[in-house]
Amino acid sequence: MRALVRVYWQIEEHHDLATQEHMLGYFVLHESRQQRAGRFDSAHLNPFAQLSGALAYPEVRRLVTVNVLFILPFSLMGVGLPLLLRDSLGWGPGETSTVYMVVGVCDILAQGFLLPHLIR
């Protein structure tokens, strides 16, 4: 274990975070060292098969649904707001970027100051 810690801190000096995470995952998580039955082929790389396997669990399905419902409006705002502001108000890139700046500052204030008080 001391050798692992020594190697970990040597890597820390080089700031290679991905290698650190890989090593900790390999040595700490026992399931990552278990030999799996069967062979690995290219069919395992299909993202739709991976997604359908993950969505078989009700908890994961609910989590993905909530994330999609939360992220979708923000994605649509990023695409639709400049078009809406240009067509309805005649605003250009300068005014539109000001709106995005105000939304970002409000988001920072809400997450940095308001949310900690609401969590308590």
Rank of each mutant, 00 (worst) to 15 (best):
Glu21Trp: 09
Val99Thr: 07
Phe113Asn: 02
Tyr57Phe: 07
Arg62Trp: 08
Arg39Pro: 00
Gln35Val: 14
His22Ala: 14
Pro116Gln: 06
Ile11Glu: 03
Tyr100Glu: 06
Asn67Leu: 14
Leu69Thr: 04
Phe113Gln: 08
Glu31Met: 03
Glu31Ser: 09
Gln111Ser: 13
Ala37Gln: 11
Gly90Met: 04
Gln111Ile: 04
Val105Tyr: 07
Trp91Ala: 10
Leu89Ala: 15
Asp107Met: 12
Phe27Gly: 00
Asn67Ser: 11
Thr65Arg: 08
Ser32Gln: 14
Tyr100Cys: 05
Leu115Met: 13
Asp41Lys: 00
Trp9Asp: 10
Gly104Cys: 11
Ser52Glu: 12
Leu118Pro: 02
Val66Thr: 10
Thr65Ile: 04
Gly92His: 12
Pro58Gln: 07
Thr65Cys: 06
Val105Met: 13
Leu84Val: 14
Thr19Asn: 07
Asp107Thr: 08
Thr98Arg: 15
Asn67Val: 12
Val103Met: 15
Ile71Ser: 12
Pro47Thr: 02
Tyr8Cys: 01
Ala18Asp: 15
Leu109Met: 11
Asn46Ala: 03
Val103Lys: 14
Ala3Gly: 07
Gln50Trp: 03
Arg86Tyr: 06
Asn46Val: 02
Gly112Met: 03
Arg61Glu: 02
His30Phe: 09
Val102Asp: 04
Asn67Pro: 01
Leu63Met: 10
Leu69Arg: 09
Gly38Cys: 05
Val68Arg: 04
Asp107Tyr: 08
Ile108Ser: 15
Leu45Asn: 12
Pro47Phe: 01
Leu84Cys: 08
Leu118Ile: 04
Glu59Cys: 04
Arg61Asp: 02
Val79Trp: 09
Gly94Arg: 15
Asp41Ser: 08
Val105Ile: 15
Tyr100Asn: 14
Val66Gly: 04
Val79Ala: 13
Tyr26Cys: 02
Arg86His: 12
Tyr57Leu: 10
Val103Trp: 08
Phe27Ser: 01
Arg120Ala: 14
Arg33Ile: 00
Glu95Val: 01
